[in-house]
Structures are given as structure tokens and as C-alpha cells.
Write a protein that binds this DNA or RNA. Structure first.
Length: 375
RNA sequence: GGGGAGAUACCAAAGCGGUCAACUGGGGCAGACUGUAAAUCUGCUGGCGAAUGCCUUCGUAGGUUCGAAUCCUGCUCUCCCCA
């Protein structure tokens, strides 16, 4: 299922291929986030043709609430429903348990929460979130976890990790006791938690490694902690997670975060930043980060990004995109999202090439300066 | 020609004796956003100053008052109705 093709000699970076029945995924990989069965504002066609996405995300919480499992089942799963033939990974809803926290109650059994749509009460358990993901038919399912907030004291983090581990055992049991509904294999990734506490992260990484799943995830990071804390935590966890399985760093991050994590042995990433920030006017380009809403771009008719990760990057000018975004035009969101995602995907693809060529560290150092520059 | 209404900051629009450098929208300027309740949210928006603050503003010229965007008079302009 996961084959490592090349290891970097200077860092812990590796280039591999993650195979699913919906296609092979060269790693490192960035996975566009498509929470509600859509990567906001982007046609499936463009995900393939402009962005070259190899896998996208869906979200159990959102799809469960709308359109609901009954429709998802009638549709024959999410792939068919949204007309997407490539792999899909679904988050379990663990993050929503955290981000929608005013509406939730956690106990041993699961997470009791109120729908943000109509206020109705629902219960997520380790078991039913696997069941729902069976119906959704994601190639990679995630266990239900609790993503602890930052800052968070050791006592709370410890309790949270214990709960997540308890849920992990139950999710794995349900996973092993059930079969896919749609005729192709599904795998389940457990999630390491533990805040920024090294002892908890070690315990959690050992627990997750012991589950023996096909891949493993690191959660609970990029929730507000300093980047250095995140990098240190990744190092500790990746020292324990099996090296022959893919490692997925959930919800990360900035282009620099991603390169740093790749250098520490992470293979998979997802983040709303390229799409959400793109819609809000933040563009990641080969020239640096720009806020397209700023007045200085109003008469700049140069391409959005001359390096052209996608066709929209060179076809449209900064001034035109600024006009669209400032006017609230839908096309502005679409162009920004396509460009940003193409930029992210292209960056990670380049990282892979550099790992294979054995030049990753040098390349990363020269890229990092450019990637953090704000124009 | 007769009768009526009104002129407030970039625009629209509140305020109708002191708590007004002036509500609120819009526009403008900037910021935030990391497993998407986000095409969202926040701040600033007369001048100078880091700031207590100081200076100049509510069509215009006077006046009343301790004090006026708010009251009175003249002027200018705009809009509506009837001829």
C-alpha cells in the first residue's frame, strides 16, 4: 500500500507512493480540502486539469449533517455523488468536535453535539463515525479523536489523550469487524494527540504505532502554538511512528510549515489555507505572499504568478484579480483558489523531485526565504 | 407666479442647545484566517501627535447664548406640489 522510493540523505524526508484502488498518490502530497463534497469554488475537472490533485478530503461531520447518510447511501458513496474518481480521505469530525466546542459534550461513549445547521442533537462515537465513513466510501478513513485546544494544560491534555486512545481501540475494532460497502478497500488512520507535551506525544505515538494501521496521522497541531513547538513535536512523534507507513500531518499548513514537516518525515498534508485565504485575497506566489486586496496591485497588470503553477496564474493579471476579489465576484474566489492550490501542489511536487534528486535540503533553504516573503 | 421641503464628513443618512469630531450603512485603507459553521471576521477612516490633548469642521454671512450642527435673520443653491 505504501512504498518508499527514495530517502533524502540530509533530512528525514522521503518520496513514496501511496496506493489506493482509486489511484496512486505520489508522496509527499498536499490534499485539497473539500469539506462538504466540494473543494469550494472549484470544478472537479479543474482539480484534475489545473491543479493535478491526486486526492481530496471530505468531512464526516458535514456530510453526515448534510446531505446525510441516507442520500450518501442512495448515491452509492461520495465518489459517485460528487463525480470524483480519484482517492478521497475523510476526516472523522474530530476537528469539528473541537472547533464547534460551544455545542458539544464529551464523554467516554463519544461526542454529543448540536448541529450548527438546525440545533438538533447528535452523538458521534468511534463506531458510528467508522460506519458513516463506510457509507461515504472514503479510501482513507480517520478515527474519531479529540483535538485539544492550545494553550491547554498537561492535565487536560493527558485526559484528552486517554479519551482519544480509548476511542481509537473501539474504532479499530469496528473497522476490523466491518467491510467496505462499495467494493473497494478502505483503510483507517489513527491519530496521535498530546498537545505540545513530549511525554504525552510519545505515549500517544506508541499507542498509534501499536494499532498497526496502514498509515498514521498527527493531529492537534497548528492550533495556535509557535511553529517551533510544532516542529519539535513532529520530530518526537515521527521518531516513534513506523517509518514504512505514511504519516499524515493534519491541517498543516503554510508552505514553510509543509516543507519543514516534509524534512521531518511527513508525507501527507491538508489545509484550508490555500482555499479559504485565497477567497479572502491572500495569494501564495513564486514571488512571495501577496494580499491582492491591497491598493498597490490596483494597476499591476503583470500575471498573478509568472511561474504559472496553473493556467489561471498567467492568464489573469493581479489588477484583474484584485478587481474581482474587491467586487465580491465569484470568479475572484475561483481564480484565487485554483491558483493557490496549484501553487501548493506544485511546491510539494517540487519537494518530491528534490528528494529524489538528493537536493532537498539546499532547495528547501532557498525556497523558505521566498515563501515567507510578504509583498 | 403661489405653496412646501431641504442643504451634515468621499457617498448616503442620523443628530435638532452642552455627554458631537458628530449614530449607522456604503465606499476607502489595513489586518486576521492552518484536519472549512468563513465568498468570513476585525480595526481605522477631518488635521497634527506615541498619548492625556490641541486645532479646524455640519451651504454661507451675521446674531442670540456661559455654550450652537442644533435657536433667530439675511443671502446662495437644491427638490416637490399647484399655476
Amino acid at each position: 500500500m505504501f512504498r518508499i522510493e527514495s530517502r533524502d540523505k540530509d533530512t528525514n524526508a522521503r518520496a513514496g507512493v501511496l496506493s489506493t484502488e482509486h489511484g496512486d498518490i505520489p508522496t509527499p502530497v498536499f490534499m485539497p480540502v473539500g469539506t462538504g463534497g466540494t473543494v469550494k469554488g472549484i470544478l472537479q475537472r479543474d482539480l484534475v486539469e489545473e491543479i493535478d490533485a491526486k486526492i481530496i478530503l471530505g468531512n464526516t461531520y458535514h456530510l453526515y449533517l448534510r446531505p446525510g447518510t441516507s442520500i450518501m447511501k442512495s448515491a452509492g458513496g461520495l465518489h459517485k455523488f460528487m463525480s470524483w474518481d480519484l482517492p478521497i480521505l475523510t476526516d472523522s469530525g474530530g476537528y469539528q468536535v473541537f472547533s464547534l466546542s460551544p455545542n458539544r459534550k464529551l464523554n467516554d461513549n463519544g461526542a454529543l453535539f448540536r448541529s450548527h445547521i438546525d440545533g438538533s442533537e447528535h452523538l458521534f462515537t468511534p463506531e458510528n463515525t467508522v460506519d458513516i465513513q463506510r457509507i461515504i466510501g472514503s479510501d482513507i478513513m480517520m478515527v474519531l479523536d479529540e483535538c485539544a485546544p492550545y494553550p491547554c494544560d498537561h492535565k487536560y491534555a493527558k485526559k484528552s489523550v486517554a479519551l482519544t486512545h480509548h476511542w481509537l481501540d473501539r474504532a479499530v475494532e469496528r473497522y476490523r469487524g466491518t467491510d467496505p460497502l462499495w467494493g473497494y478497500n478502505q483503510v483507517l488512520f489513527p491519530i496521535v494527540q498530546g498537545g505540545i507535551f513530549d511525554d504525552l506525544r510519545k505515549i500517544s505515538a506508541e499507542k498509534v504505532a501499536g494499532a498497526g494501521m496502514e498509515g498514521n496521522a498527527i493531529g492537534g497541531l497548528s492550533v495556535g502554538e509557535p511553529a517551533e513547538e510544532m516542529y519539535r513535536t513532529i520530530e518526537i512523534v515521527n521518531g516513534i511512528l513506523p517509518g514504512d507507513k505514511p504519516r499524515y500531518l493534519m491541517g498543516v499548513g503554510t508552505p514553510v510549515n509543509i516543507l519543514e514537516a516534509i524534512g521531518r518525515g511527513v508525507d501527507m498534508f491538508d489545509c484550508v489555507m490555500p482555499t479559504r485565504n485565497g477567497r479572502n485575497g491572500m495569494l501564495f506566489t513564486s514571488e512571495g505572499i501577496i494580499n491582492i486586496k491591497n491598493n498597490r496591485w490596483s494597476a499591476d497588470f503583470s500575471p498573478i504568478d509568472p511561474a504559472g503553477p496553473s493556467s489561471v496564474s498567467t492568464r489573469y493579471s493581479k489588477a484583474y484579480l484584485r478587481h474581482l476579489i474587491i467586487s465580491g465576484e465569484i470568479l475572484g474566489s475561483q481564480i484565487s483558489s485554483i491558483h493557490n492550490l496549484a501553487f501548493y501542489l506544485s511546491l510539494v511536487r517540487q519537494a518530491r523531485e528534490q528528494i529524489v534528486k538528493g537536493n532537498f535540503r539546499t532547495w528547501k533553504e532557498s525556497m523558505t526565504r521566498k515563501l515567507s516573503e510578504r509583498l
